[in-house]
Write a protein that binds this DNA or RNA. Structure first.
Length: 523
RNA sequence: GCUCCCAUCGUCUAGUCAGGCCCAGGACGCCAGGUUUUCAUCCUGGUAACAGGGGUUCGAAUCCCCUUGGGAGUACCA
């Protein structure tokens, strides 16, 4: 007969009824830069917390001393801050459950490991990594997988197979040991996931995971459960890669006699082409950032590009990420953080992985760029101008920005669409010359220059009117005149309305460009 | 291999829980046309999907089963 174990305790359900506060955590490991999948997990946690007036906690899970990467923790904090994801409790802000870095909580975990041993839910194991490695290899040679579980633990060196005094002796001598969880036999672990529904696993397919390492540190599994319990986490929202660990975690809560939080396992972010989890290499290969901020690896010296440095607005980036795997069920696509908070629900998170689309990400940035005020855009753009050694007044830059912003996705692209406002053309596009610069054009341009010279107020409306009258009076073709004029003023077949260009560069510059062009182009 | 998860246009997705309103809607991309003094924007239109097979049902994208495909996990990593 199977013993049915369900983590779905009444208390967990009561969180809703009792209006007990929602408390969620983002718990990254500082082993490198946080990639956009991690940012999305943090974002969903944040949206959920804010939506329910709950608390958002940042906990650093650095129980693997061998994988510590200097700067990674700071990177994570800075990245999330850039995204507008703020924490109520964290290594920086502190909080009622401090410390929030697991390495700083090290001494805490042993008592919980001991407790599990005392209650018979865990045991000591003395097998060395080398011995286990050998067993794995041997199994692999026979196309099998070695698993430390019900079927093998009776043959291994642990407190299940050894006499109590021998175990005591070994430990007393300082022999290295780990603590393993004793997976119960013949049990069905029944789990409830907010996104996936009911998931059932037979306990004998699970293995006796290490809870406490020989270096005196807990593994992720132990530390995670202990801290989530101690920190009173109500909902665990994390990536789908953790789903296979859920049975263990549920069993752990049971072993401790604790109420488990509710779980929600998010679908993964997949590479844009083909299949598989999005990775750093995909970004390099396909030319888009996979990290929020630029990252300089302290070990390899390698630099990875970031969304911030690539010119993305944080709110556009967040908006894009929010819609990857979640949707509001309406046709709205542009959301501020506050709107996301209002609309978000875990029930509307999909189950299937989402392929990341760099093109749509650019579209989002375009939407935000167009929406941004001309003056704030001008402020950003003037930094690019300064770098190019170009000086111009704010009013001009603002006007220029307003004329070209519809055409670009990024602030840095404004230059390509507006350089001719700041620089006199030095060369003329061959194709355009061929197409627009006819034998009669020079005469036309000279005559036009004379007309323009008589206009004092270089305003778009005046210019349009004067040119129109002149063209109509003389029976010229609008295209013949304007395209040639554009060639002289811009040097290419591009740019906004000509009168707007002339009004901004002014009368002197306009006339100068015409005469300069006339002297360098064929007569 | 084993365990678990997943499956609608090229991509993100609506619709699936409560079967008919769906010969499947929106967005990105792409293509065409229109507006325009250029380019772009913009507007209009188009392209394009229920993985396959069985059931259940008067009726299935929606429910069930199988197959196929994809993903994740399988460490003294998280």
């Amino acid at each position: 007969m199977r013993l049915v174990v369900s983590y779905l305790t009444f208390a967990a359900q009561f969180y809703q009824f009792m209006n007990t506060s929602v408390r969620v955590r983002f718990a990254p490991s500082p082993t490198g830069p946080l990639h956009i999948g991690g940012v999305r997990t943090a974002l969903y946690n944040y949206l959920f917390a804010r939506k329910h007036d709950g608390s958002m906690i940042l906990r650093i899970e650095d129980t693997d001393q061998g994988r510590f990467v200097p700067g990674a923790e700071q990177y994570i904090i800075e990245s999330l801050a850039w995204c507008g994801i703020h924490f109520d409790e964290s290594v920086v802000a502190g909080g009622p459950h401090a410390p929030y870095r697991q390495s700083d909580r090290k001494t805490l975990y042993k008592q919980f490991s001991d407790k599990l041993i005392a209650s018979g839910h865990a045991y000591y194991a003395f097998d060395t990594p080398e011995e286990l490695e050998e067993l794995r290899k041997a199994a692999e040679a026979e196309k099998q997988t070695f698993t430390y579980n019900t079927s093998t633990r009776k043959q291994l060196r642990n407190s299940l197979t050894m006499a109590a005094d021998e175990v005591d002796k070994l430990i007393g001598e300082g022999t290295a040991f780990v603590v393993r969880f004793l997976i119960p036999e013949n049990t069905e672990v029944i789990m409830e996931d907010i996104i996936r529904g009911k998931v059932v696993v037979k306990s004998e397919t699970l293995d006796d995971k290490v809870l406490y390492k020989s270096d005196g540190m807990p593994t992720y599994h132990l530390a995670n459960i202990v801290d989530d319990h101690l920190m009173e986490i109500s909902h665990v929202i994390r990536g789908e890669e953790w789903l296979p660990s859920l049975p263990l975690h549920v069993l752990l809560y049971q072993a401790f006699g604790w109420d488990a939080p509710q779980f929600a396992h998010l679908p993964l972010l997949l590479k844009p082409d083909g299949n598989g989890k999005l990775s750093k290499r995909d970004g390099d290969r396909l030319g888009f950032p996979v990290f929020p901020l630029q990252w300089n690896d302290p070990k390899t010296g390698e630099t990875s590009s970031g969304y911030r440095e690539s010119g993305y607005f944080p709110d556009a980036f967040v908006n894009m990420l929010a819609l990857l795997g979640w949707n509001p069920g309406t046709e709205q696509e542009i959301f501020s953080m506050d709107e996301l908070i209002g609309a978000f629900s875990l029930e509307r998170v999909g189950k299937a992985g989402s392929k990341f689309d760099p093109e749509k990400t650019k579209w989002f940035n375009h939407q935000y760029l167009v929406k941004r005020s001309d003056s704030s855009l001008a402020e950003d753009f003037s930094i690019f101008l300064q770098e190019k050694g170009i000086t111009s007044d704010n009013e001009t830059i603002t006007k220029v920005v307003s004329l070209v912003k519809e055409r670009v996705n990024f602030v840095k692209e404004i230059w390509n669409e507006s350089y001719f406002f700041f620089e006199t053309p030095t060369e003329y596009d061959d194709q355009v010359v061929k197409k627009r610069w006819k034998a009669e054009t020079p005469g036309l341009m000279r005559a036009l220059a004379e007309i323009l010279a008589t206009i004092d107020a270089f305003e778009p409306s005046n210019l349009d009117e004067a040119i129109k009258v002149w063209i109509e009076t003389n029976g010229y073709g609008m295209g013949a005149v304007m395209n040639a004029l554009r060639l002289l003023l811009v040097g290419a077949a591009k740019g906004p309305h000509l009168a707007d260009i002339m009004a901004i560069i002014g009368k002197d510059e306009t006339l100068k460009r015409i005469s300069k062009g006339l002297s360098s182009l064929p007569q």
